[in-house]
Amino acid sequence: MTTTVATAATPRKRQAATDRAVAENRLGLKLVAPAVVVMLVVTAWPMIQALYLSLYRYRLTTPNDRAFVGLRNYGTILTDSLFWHDTFNTVVIMVVSVAVELVVGFIFAMVMHRVIFARGIIRTSILIPYGIITVVSAFAWQFAFSLNNGFVNSWFAWLPGIQTGADATNWFGHHWPAMFAIIVSEIWKTTPFMSLLLLAGLSQVSEDMIEASQVDGATWWQRLWKVILPNMRAAIMVAVLFRALDAFRIFDNIYVMTRGAQNTESSSFLTYRQVIEQFQLGLGSALSVLLFLTVLLLAFGIVKLFRVDLARARGEA
């Protein structure tokens, strides 16, 4: 189909232009088709199926007990304190880790931006947490905080509330310490991503503007807030959006570190547990649908809040 375009190109220019446009349109669609099909097969179709199953009482090991229950599963979930507690946990993890990462990531980015020596070394060491398997990072931190085998208790025993020996601090024995350990592992693993996005933003702030403000007598703090940050707005928004949605889906760390004990479950973990461990296909599907809607809502909210045109931000006008 492409050869016709080439031969028809010379004689009638107008006709050729539309022909060309049609062919280009067709070629474009053909080129994106495989990717679109693969993306839809695994997301759109299963979501429709989840929508359907969510209307049933359906348990894998008691198949004879299957019955249509309408929206009752949704009612059960939305009036359940566990669901709201887990949603709260997820939001706490998301907000705390993104806020800390934004600050730490920015400092990392500043250092990397300024560093004139050993750039390869710092880039490598920052990329290792990024590339490492989340499960591995979770294990490393779980062992670090472990009661009998962790270095955290012995290194930080000088802090009030942290003890070693027979009454050692049991990080995974209480809600907030366990949440703390989970958040630390999440922050460690994902700060590099944040800082690299911020570094890219930082490198686009023109040095001239910074120097000009310096000449005007602006302090370091003023330069940061008046010149650097406003010029990095797009980069910060994209980084926050991606990390926030990523943190909201937290699952691996919790699975490895607490298995949801001490009420440290996230929304994703709750959904997983209903479907896979409780065999509750009906309730689990309803949770899946709700989780999907929550993420959609969240994405919409962040985009509206920050007024980012993502297509623009990605460089596609």
Binding site: A50, S268, T271, S288, L291
Partner: peptide, 9 residues
């Protein structure tokens, strides 16, 4: 997309 919501279907 929340990957976990795909597990069931």
């Amino acid at each position: 997309f929340p990957v976990v919501s795909l597990i069931s279907p």
